[in-house]
Design a binder for these strands. Sequence first.
DNA 1: CGCCGAGTTGAACTGAATCAAGAAACGTGG
DNA 2: CCACGTTTCTTGATTCAGTTCAACTCGGCG
Lengths: 188, 188
Amino acid sequence: MQLIKDYLKKLAPISEEETDFFFSMMGKKVFKKGSLILTAGKVENHIYFIESGIVRFWIDKDEKEISSAFVFEGSFFSSYPSFLTRKASIWNIQAITPTVLWSISYSNLQQIYKQISVGEKIGRLVAEHLAIMLFYRETSLLRETPEERYLMLFSEHPRFLQSIPLKYLASYIGVTPQALSRIRKRIS
Amino acid sequence: MQLIKDYLKKLAPISEEETDFFFSMMGKKVFKKGSLILTAGKVENHIYFIESGIVRFWIDKDEKEISSAFVFEGSFFSSYPSFLTRKASIWNIQAITPTVLWSISYSNLQQIYKQISVGEKIGRLVAEHLAIMLFYRETSLLRETPEERYLMLFSEHPRFLQSIPLKYLASYIGVTPQALSRIRKRIS
DNA sequence: CGCCGAGTTGAACTGAATCAAGAAACGTGG
DNA sequence: CCACGTTTCTTGATTCAGTTCAACTCGGCG
């Protein structure tokens, strides 16, 4: 819980009571390695905060899976478009390590927006932060080659490379596992 | 101004006085075809609403330009990451037709957040909407081929194809102008 | 009328996809 | 704790879409 407290405090000044109310709206969930948190086709009804573990987003393409994001402890995540629009998610979400999450349901989040004065602001800041990350992701996909993206990950998020299997990383940077294996060889 | 009013009302209930205050924080700006709205390296100090015209975002790659977005009348835009973080923009922004904008400065937006009770909510909804669009953009870049992206534009945003030169569209879908020319030929 | 940028077309090249097979790592049950 | 089987990773050969460099056409505008 301390992680969440720190996260919120970084975003906006928030009182003890408000924090308590926030926590009262959350529930703990534990997932085994490999288990599904959300299946594509279902409506996302939660926003999650990762206490520990790693979460993978992916989307189907023909017979294959394309990983679109990995999220680590200390961050919020959700199948955001589904959560916000209340429509079926096109993304699947999975715990790729043993994972502990704190969830907030859609209706509880609306409660938070109503009851806590800085609620809306926190929501805004989280959405803004997400949008910024997605802008950079788009730029990376448009401007860099797969090899450059791999090197970027290598230098900026070495954690990714250690803790995520190559087969998932490959589609994240936009190539097949075979191609990523060759890129790795080329580099070393 | 009616366009903006409609836009705001769609997002959240907003009173006449609040709308008036909102408008008092905005200033009108007119740009000629081809003129720059923001140069990469500068800090974005405004959010803009397009009354009329088309705006292009692009980013440099080596000697070339990569177009990352086109925005039409009736929408807000900004070099968002720069605007929010107060750091230099990596995107350039340009009017590709004669364009009329309504701008809100960073400090005026903070005023709006302070003074209008639904201000934060509107800010949140705009950011959420943007994030959703960027999620789909990422998915398109990861999952579709350039040809599929072109066909999508063709069916979903025919406006793009009519009003935007091929040389800009090409980098938006992720290929060279030559390749896009061949894709077009292949299709017809 | 001539120029210039946008778009088209051609030819050679290249990085990644695909198909296929072998090597290494992993976890699962005995 | 080892042995087996499955999954992941690697490597090879072929194919293909897109890049690059280059030349040519078209249309608008001074």
